[in-house]
Structure formats: C-alpha cells, structure tokens
Design a protein around this nucleic acid. Sequence first.
RNA 1: GGGCGGUUAGCUCAGUUGGUUAGAGCGCCUGCCUUACAAGCAGGAAGUCGGGGGUUCGAGUCCCUCACUGCCCACCA
Length: 931
Amino acid sequence: MPHDLPKAYDPTAIEDHWAAYWVEEKLFVQPTPETGAVGEPFTILLPPPNVTGRLHMGHMLNQTEMDILTRWQRMSGRRALWLPGTDHAGIATQMMVERQLTAEGTTRQQLGREAFVERVWEWNRHYGGAILDQMKRLGASVDWSREYFTMDERLSVAVREAFVRLYEQGLIYRGAYIVNWCPRCQTAISDLEVVYDEHKGHLWEIRYSVLDNFGQDSGEYITVATTRPETMLGDVAVAVHPEDERYKHLHGRKLRLPLVGREIPIILDEWVSREFGTGAVKVTPAHDPNDFALGERHHLPQINVMDDTGHINAEGGAYAGLDRFVARKHIVADLEKQGLLAGIKDHVHNVGHCDRCKTVVEPRLSTQWFVKIAPLAEKAIAAVKPDADGEKAIRFTPEMYEKTYLNWMENIHDWCISRQLWWGHRIPAWHCGVCHKITVAREDPAACAHCGSAEITQETDVLDTWFSSGLLPVSVFGWPNITTETRADFDAFYPTSLLVTGFDILFFWVARMIMLGCWFAGDVPMPDGSPRPLAESVPFREVYIHALVRDANREKMSKTKGNVIDPIEIVKQYGTDAVRFTLASMASPGTDIAFNVARTEGYRAFANKIWNAARFIFMNVDRAAEVGIKVDPATLGGMPDVGDDAPLEARWIVAELHATAAKVNQALENYRYDDAANAIYQFFWGSFCDWYIEIIKLRLDFSESADKAKTGAALTTLVQVFEAALRLLSPFMPFLTEELWHAVYDGNPPVKSIALSSYPRAGAKATVSQIIDRMLGLQFLVTGIRARRKELGIPENVATPVKVGMWAGAFGSSQTAEDNPDILMKLAQISVLEFVSLADCDESLAWSPVGPTDVAVLYEKPIDVPAERERLTKDIAKYEKGVAAAERQLGNEGFLAKAPAHVVEGLKKQESETRTLLEKARAALEALPQQ
RNA sequence: GGGCGGUUAGCUCAGUUGGUUAGAGCGCCUGCCUUACAAGCAGGAAGUCGGGGGUUCGAGUCCCUCACUGCCCACCA
C-alpha cells in the first residue's frame, strides 16, 4: 500500500496529515511520554509572536531555522525542548480592539477600564494566537503542552515579583522627566519605540523683545530658531553661550515672550552652540530633553503646554484646545502679523514617530516609572565580554552583533517601563490619598504601608510589554517559584541553549532578557545549593541572529509597497518543505535573504526528485519481493556500510553518505544552514540520483539466471542509503521525509516518526576519500565520452564502440574504468568497449584526451571540421595560458624557496598535465583535414 | 555626527587559517519522451572577484585609499 505513490509529488496531499499527526501524537513534548527525560537538554525559546500577529516570511525563516536545529538536536540524542508562546503585545493589541470599538461607534473610555480589558480577553479568545496555528501547519516541532501567554497567571506572578524586587533594591523609581509621548496612543513609549525619519521641515526664526530696566521693550531683539514654534508657549528662558560676543551686552537682561507676554531671562550656558542658527536657543524644559537638562541646571520652571492628545492646554492661553500642528500654523501667522517672524528657512531634520502608529512623537514632561539600568547593564556586559579565561557566557553569531550589543549596552539610558494603557501587567503600586507615599507589594495591600491609611488606589499604568517578555527565560521555567519540588524544569532547561532571532529585536528583547535573566536567575542557587555563577545565570548560551527576508529585488517587504510575500500562499503553491529548503539554503549568516520563488520552484523539483527516487526504489523492492528477495528492516536505521569486496558504486555511495553526513553535522554546528542544505542537495541529486541509481540499474537483475545474493545485497544497500539520506534531510524537509520514511518501512516503522529516529553521523572510514577519488576518475571518463559523443552529433539513443587508451607514464590511471567496464558502457552508451595501450593504438582514429586517457569514439559520421578546429583552437589557447602561468610561477625562485612543498609539487604536476593536453590538442589540430 | 556591513557569472549568493586553472542554484544555448522523475536527462557558453595603491614567492582572501550601496545608534535648537 504505501509503495503505490503517485507519479508527481503533491505536498498538499500529505502535509496536513503529518502536521496534525505530530501534534496529536505529542511527539515533541518534554519529558517525552515514552522515554522520559533522556539526554542532555537542548532548549530553545520561540520568540513569542504578538497575539495579533499573522505569519510573515521573517517568522517562517526564524521558525525554519529553529526547527532545523531542534529536529537535528533531537535526532542526535539531545533532550530537545522548543517552547512556544505568544506575547500580549500591549499597544498593538489595545489598538486592535480600539479599532473594533471605533467601528461600533464607541470608545474604550466609554466602556471603562474593566469592561475594556474583558473585551480584549474576548478578542484574544476569538482571534488571538492565529500565528501559532499557522506554525502548527508548518510542522514546527515545538512542545505544545507548554504553550504560554505572557498574561498567564504564573507569568504575571513573575512579572510582579520582578517589579517588587527591583523596587526594593532601589532600581525602580518614579518621576517627572521628558519622555517620548505618542498623542495617538496616549502613552509614553521608550526610546527604542521611536523611529526617526528624515523630514524636510523649516527653521522658524522668532524675535524676542529685549526689555529695558523698567520692563519695557527696549527696541532690541534676540532672534531664536526653532523647528517646533508651538513649544514657545512653554518657553521659560533664552540661552546663549557665555563667550558669545554678540550677546555679551545682554547678559542679565530679560525678554518678553511673544504672544504669551511672559518675562523670561537670558541665561548663559556653554552647551549652546554658537555656530548653529543664531546662537540663541529658546528654552522649553517641558518639551525637549536638552532644554529639560538646561532647566534643571538653571532652576527654571517647567511649563507643559500640551495635553495627552497633543492639543494645547490652558497654559497656551489663546491657543488652548488647538491641535499642536494647527497651533503651529496660528502661532507662525500671529508672529508674522506682529512682525516678530524674522525668517523661515528650509531645514532637513529627523522627526521621531511612534513605532506602532507612526504618529509624530512629542517629547513631553510626564511622570513615569523607570528602571535604573546601570547595575543590570553591568552584568549584561560581563555576560557577553570574554572573562579572564577568554570564555564568553553568551556567544553571538554572527560575531559582529556582539559589538552592536555592547555598544548599546555601554551607552544605555534608564528604561521607561510605564505605559498609559489598559491592556498589560498593571504596576503593583498603590498611591496613598493621605500621606501620598507609594506602597509596592507582592499581594494587593489593604492599607498604605507608610501611614496605614486605607485610602489607597492602585497605579493605573501598566508595564512595557518587553518587561514581561524580557523575563520569559526565567518565568517559563517556574521562576520565582523555584523550590526543591518545582525546580526540575529550571535545572534542566535553564540557561536555554540558544536564541534564534532577528536583529530588529536585539535591543528590545535580547538585551532585556540578558539584563533581567542575569539579574534574577543569579539569585537562584545551583541544584547543589552553591551560588550561581554568571555563566549559569544567562538566559541563553548562544544567540544566532538572522537577517531580513527581502523580496526577489532585495526590497524590504512592506504592505505599502505591496511586495509582501505571504508564506502561507507560497507554501500552498510549492509545499512547506520546498519553502523551508529555500530559506535554509539562502540563510548564510549576516546576509539578507532575497526571497525568490524561482529558488523555491527549484526545491519543489528537488522534492519531486526524491519522491521519484523513492518510486524507483519501491518499484524494485516490490519486484524483488516477487522473486523472494527481501530487505530486512532490521538492517535499516543506522549508518550503512559495505565490505571492501562490494561493487564500486556501493562503496562509493556509502562513502559519499558518510562524507555528506560529516559536512552537514559540521555545518549545523556553525549555523551554516546553507552549507548543510547544499551538501544534502548535492548528495541526493548529484550523487545518489544522477550516478548511483543509474549504476544500480545494472545490479537489479531479477531474472532467473541472476545471482540473488548479489541482487539482494545491491538492493539492501540502495534502501539503506536512501533511508539514511531521508533522515539526513528530515530536519529540512520534515513532511516529505516523514511520508517516504514510513513507506520505506511499509507503514511499520520502528518508532512513531522519522523525527524520533537517529541522525546520521559519519563513521571513521579511512577509505572514504580514496573511493571518492576513484569514482571521480570514472565519472570524468563518462562525462568526457559523452561530450565527445555530443560533438560528433551521435544521437542519444545510439550506442557506439569506444576505445580507451591510457597515456604512458601518465598522471592517473584508467584502472577503475577497466575494472568496471559495465558501468562505463551503460553510462556512456558504449556498444563495444576496448582498453588499448596508446603506444600501439590506431593512428587513423580520432583520439581526444579525456583526463588521464585518450578516448576514441568510433562513429561513422564525419567530423565537423570547422567546429572541431574552433574547439581545438580554443583549447590550445586555454592550455597555453595555463602552461605559461605555471612556468612563470615555477621559474620564480622565491616561490620555489618559500612555498610549501605540496603546493610546488601540485603546480609541477599540473604544469606537466596541461603541457600534455596542449601537445595533444596541437597534434589533433594538425591532423585535421585541411579545408 | 558615531559605528557596522556589502560590492564575485545575466540574477541570487558561497568562497574556511592567503596556495595549484574562483564555485553553486536559477536563467541562457544545444540535443534528447534513455519506463523513477520533462518539476526530467545529457552537453555547453558565461566572471580582468567595485576602482587604485601596498604587503607577499603568491591576494577574491591581509593593509591603505576612493567610489557606490545597505543597516544600526545618536538626535543641537
């Protein structure tokens, strides 16, 4: 039954089935239902997608890489745990639900906080986590029994504990500072959530009237320049450089703030650049970080002129109620009317936008919660830098990201963790209505911890989403509840082995996990009770950072450009395995992936190739069964091996398999998915199908007269190698290999899934390269004869006699070919094959050199003389160039003296070979009939 | 302004510590329905490794410089 495969591979026919099977059978659950907790743990945490997310190519790349490594490690005997979950994604999710409310004609404010939060939960139940279902469909080998959500009760406990501890340690403070404020989201956002865009704006120059000693306009003005004129409503001073000659006579004088009328001082500060603008700066401490610092230094008042929505507030007098950009227009117009607008200059500058909604961010004074980051950063730096022994607790691949990380960590600012949202972890702090002090507690308090008053209200702010996701590596394994009974998971899986992610969340998430992980896990003693060293406190031992998936033209995929490739669409078209293989084969570290469906088409063809190889094999297994030849399933599942007496092709394909396994394992060790994928591709298609299967057709003789033992041995090797190759390919193409692997075992495999079988490892075979070289010689001869046939215009289906003559004292041997005439004859379409000594060969034949031999293909069709002349002339030129280059090198005394012996020897050998080829080509040209 | 990458065949990319005549896939050209596979088979063409200079017996690979290009960080009104 399983041997009856359709002629062409149809991924859609099998993928859903296996995807569901893997989940239902709980194959990837840890501890494993059947075997328990066996093997050295390999832990990997899925970067939790937003609950609102839909799968895009970046996810698919990320998941493909993780799945390949996890499957590979699992098959290699590790206790592999890949842990999935989703992030509540504060702003993103809140926005989603708010949009729904807008459509319904209501707002969250009308709904009220409690009802709104319930509404978001409801949304989650309906639409949340769609991305994980997509992931299931893609066959990700994760432990679904451990799926988490960052708002789960147990993770919320961890968040609260972390906050309280940091607060108790004096590392969390609350205060009024300039923060990035999004007037649309109506919340503070962190520096990282601001994206800057170059903007062609203006520099407005405004004249501020200098007052005389009586508080009257003196007729003199100071001109300031600004890109945000509306903030002048909150100006409290104008600053100039103390050494600036232009303003020295004005030191100590006052100014009148236009439109507002407030008297403001001229202050002196060396921070002011004399070169920029007019050298005089308006000072708005409530709306600019630099001005804020300036204001602190000079004890200036802070006047916030905008409300949470970016409209001018009561401080703005006549402008109150106007949107900030409307106010800007009015103010500029009014200034102009009053003759106080000195000029408008074009000015290109960077404008910050909210990462989430792209609204222009307003730097604004606001009371927020912050993490004092320096102590955490210190540990996070130590975790990445080499220690005294040169060891790094966390290793980055590609290594250059280590620099990026350290550079950021060394210049880090305190982290604003409060958000004025309703969806998220509410800050566990209570404000006292009596003494106005703050109570921070693990359990909801009934009274103020300072004065005992029951008049307390909980802080309304929630935490930055990244605060909770930054805790994931510890919280998913049970922290803070690490007791003797509960710590099995923590001990087994923390630190996690590897983090695979994109550079876009290097600072958002990776850096925060390192800071928080080192900080909190560091307090958890080792299983034996000893203090936990830094190397065991880190959230992961390795970080692999992959690049961006771009479109085929290297453009960033974006909705506005309309060049987004939906992975699910591509998967439907070409099959999951083909898309996975595309991503893997293009994933060389440090380079963006230009996703090109042409590649995927190629890998779909590859899948089809394997499918058809299986059909060929099964066809022969069935034929064999008819004459009583069987392959014992017990001989499958390991690394195939054959004796030295086995036929060349058997020894060779086994050698190639070992060599490929070595390459693939090595490549995966180094995150070279591309090298690994290419090695398997080359093996399967280039070696197994193109050569081995073609040759083995000679051996699969099921006739009466055949030697059944030989046929059986050939068939066994064929199936063994194929089965092992499926396992080798399995992490890359899990669906196809699962299907065919079950078929190999006729539906009765030794374990439930190929994913639970063992990964091929190369054995120590000394003869590997020797056999491969011998086969290479034979292949070279085959290719040479085929090319010769082609030149002579011999139809593919016509066999011709061929003579092969070995060069006297030449640099190779035709021994392999002489030992295997049947192979040569089949692959090169030879009717009669004769090996002759070149010394007594028939001069009248058209001999041409093929590797270390001369070959004469006997065919009655006359030679195309002009074509032949052209080819030989070209060859001669090439050989002449080669010989000349080699001679030049060999004539160089420095080279002979300093180059290693094997290089010199190699060059000499090559020179003599090329010289021979040159002479032969010249002779052949000479021998051509003159026309 | 600071930092980090990239530039190799028509396209997308490999190229390990410098070492013999630089590779792959796709595309292109030519010929084949050779019973596993036309999503295939066979053969072939195609690159002065961004420019210039240097180190070296030897440079795609190391150094300097220029050009182009991408990204990250900072955010002087």
